[in-house]
Computed example of a mutant assay.
Amino acid sequence: MFMSIGPHQAYGNIPRSIEYAVGWVAECIEYCRDHDITSIEARDEAVQEWTDHVHALGKNLLSNKVDSWMSGVNRNVAGKDKRIVARYMGSSPDFRKRCNEVSKDHYKAFKLE
């Protein structure tokens, strides 16, 4: 069974990917500040939906079927023998679209308090 870790990031040019992620998180923090929200936590159903999406993207890819740091297996380290889906394998535009949908929906994928 594959396990997922997160948060996932679109694969590609690292500085450009990180720049988008930092901007998205900063906007989320600003939204929380502007709405007097002091706690944010991903909803269980949103976590499951995202995990299912990430797993579906990685299904049948050779990179997820071999032992490597990309699949979480390192035979030189005790306990690192369980395969995981460690990367988001979708495109950067699709990743950004999904993230933007969450923010446009006022972060309803999260419990906001």
Rank of each mutant, 00 (worst) to 15 (best):
M1D: 14
M1K: 13
M1Q: 13
M1N: 14
F2V: 10
M3E: 15
I5S: 07
G6R: 03
P7Q: 07
H8P: 01
Q9E: 09
A10S: 14
Y11F: 11
Y11G: 10
G12N: 05
N13K: 13
N13R: 10
P15R: 01
R16S: 14
I18G: 00
E19T: 11
E19N: 11
Y20L: 03
V22P: 04
V22T: 11
G23S: 01
G23Y: 01
W24D: 14
W24A: 15
V25G: 00
A26I: 10
E27Y: 06
E27W: 05
I29N: 07
Y31A: 03
Y31H: 12
R33L: 09
D34Y: 03
H35V: 03
H35I: 03
H35G: 08
D36F: 06
D36I: 02
S39D: 07
S39R: 10
I40D: 02
E41Q: 15
A42Y: 07
A42W: 12
A42H: 04
A42I: 13
D44F: 10
D44P: 12
E45P: 04
V47T: 08
V47A: 04
Q48R: 00
E49N: 02
W50C: 12
D52T: 11
H53G: 05
V54G: 08
V54C: 15
V54L: 11
H55I: 08
A56W: 02
A56N: 09
L61C: 06
L61G: 05
L62E: 15
L62D: 14
S63G: 07
N64D: 10
N64M: 04
K65E: 15
V66E: 12
W69C: 09
W69G: 15
M70C: 09
M70N: 14
M70R: 13
G72M: 08
N74L: 10
N76V: 03
V77Q: 04
V77T: 09
G79V: 02
G79T: 00
K80F: 11
K80E: 05
K82V: 08
V85S: 05
M89L: 07
G90S: 05
S91C: 01
S91D: 01
P93S: 05
P93Y: 00
P93G: 01
D94G: 02
D94H: 01
R96S: 03
R96W: 07
R98A: 14
R98T: 04
R98M: 12
C99K: 11
N100E: 14
E101K: 06
V102K: 07
S103N: 03
H106F: 04
H106I: 01
H106R: 12
Y107S: 07
K108R: 15
K108G: 08
K108N: 11
F110E: 00
F110C: 02
K111E: 03
K111Y: 09
L112I: 07
